[in-house]
């Protein structure tokens, strides 16, 4: 187990190294220096700033410094918000995104699995069609459109829920639903087809041949096996929630990491862009590791312990 974890951690570090390197050079390739934007600085001032931010050092030195600092989560100061470090921005905004993300993951998982199971159990019947219509709509309506529609109906027209910001649980409902829509639909379809496969499998016949009731067969034997593809989907699910948060947080005025990222993109605030990108990557790599560990728990055939198992 420890060996396996070490191997995975090493893999994460190597991946991070690549990601940091690539983002660093991508940002170097960006048009114009970080201070070359709107506000015209005097050449002297710009020079002074460049000096202060170490932009006059040779490239390899900048890269090396960045690399070393990045591993201690020190991404330097923001170019646009004077006096703020990137890591401060991240630690300030991430909790919002985390709460929102967990909420929408829970929504997507619970409702998605439920819809998928209903569809599979009521295969080719009304329940199936309803669930699949919901799912195909969910896939076709992009989260940002869902967000605006929800916002318009429930906040602006009905006034039932707050329009924006993040002050109470009520504030999180609309954005969490909007964020959950697409993954929810995916999970529902995934769950349906996997459940259908499982329900047609030999071991379900075996279970039935023992005289077990329909319910025991479906839920005790079916569900545990059918849920495996959904567990594998948790990685992409985190990605989807994360990228979705860029827009959803902006639309709902939530001061989370997603909207900070968007702001940094529009401001070309390169250190923040790089910092958040690296942070996102860490987040994803770690969640993928967690998902793999979880998978090992759910599927006895996968031995995470590393002896033989894949």
């Amino acid at each position: 187990m420890a060996k396996y974890l070490l191997k995975r951690l090493a893999y994460i570090i190597v991946s991070l190294f690549f990601i940091i390197t690539i983002t660093f050079f991508l940002m170097q390739a960006a048009p114009g220096g970080p201070f070359a934007s709107e506000k015209k600085l005097t050449p002297a001032l710009e020079e002074q700033m460049n000096e202060a931010y170490g932009l006059n050092d040779p490239l390899y030195e900048q890269y090396f410094n960045y690399l070393v600092n990045a591993f201690t989560f020190d991404f330097g100061p923001s170019f646009k918000y004077v006096g703020q470090d990137v890591i401060e921005i991240i630690t300030r905004s991430f909790p919002y995104s985390l709460i929102l993300g967990i909420e929408s993951i829970l929504i997507a998982l619970s409702i998605g699995v439920l819809l998928g199971v209903i569809a599979a159990v009521k295969h080719n019947k009304f329940g199936d069609y309803t669930a699949m219509v919901i799912a195909v709509l969910g896939i076709s309506v992009p989260s940002f459109i869902m967000a605006t529609v929800l916002q318009y109906i429930f906040a602006i027209k009905l006034g039932a829920l707050p329009v924006a910001r993040f002050e109470s649980f009520a504030h999180t409902i609309l954005p969490a639903i909007a964020l959950a829509t697409t993954p929810l639909a995916f999970i529902a379809r995934l769950m349906r087809s996997s459940m259908l496969d499982v329900l047609n499998s030999d071991y379900i016949k075996t279970a039935k041949s023992k005289g077990l009731g329909q319910r025991v067969v479906t839920y005790k034997h079916g569900l545990r096996n059918a849920i495996l593809p959904v567990v594998s989907y948790l990685g992409p699910l985190v990605v989807s929630i994360l990228t979705g948060s860029f827009i959803i947080e902006s639309i709902f005025g939530i001061p989370g990491l997603g909207s900070e990222f968007v702001v940094s993109v529009t401001n070309r605030d390169y250190t923040v862009i790089m910092g958040t990108t690296v942070f996102f990557s860490v987040l994803l790599l770690v969640s993928i590791l967690l998902v793999d560990l979880l998978y090992g728990l759910v599927d006895p055939r996968i031995k995470v312990a590393g002896k033989g198992g894949k």
Binding site: T23, L26, V239, L242, T243, F246, V265, I273, T277, F280, L284
Partner: peptide, 8 residues
Amino acid sequence: PYLLVVIL
């Protein structure tokens, strides 16, 4: 992540 790459 695909969208992250595209954005960058």
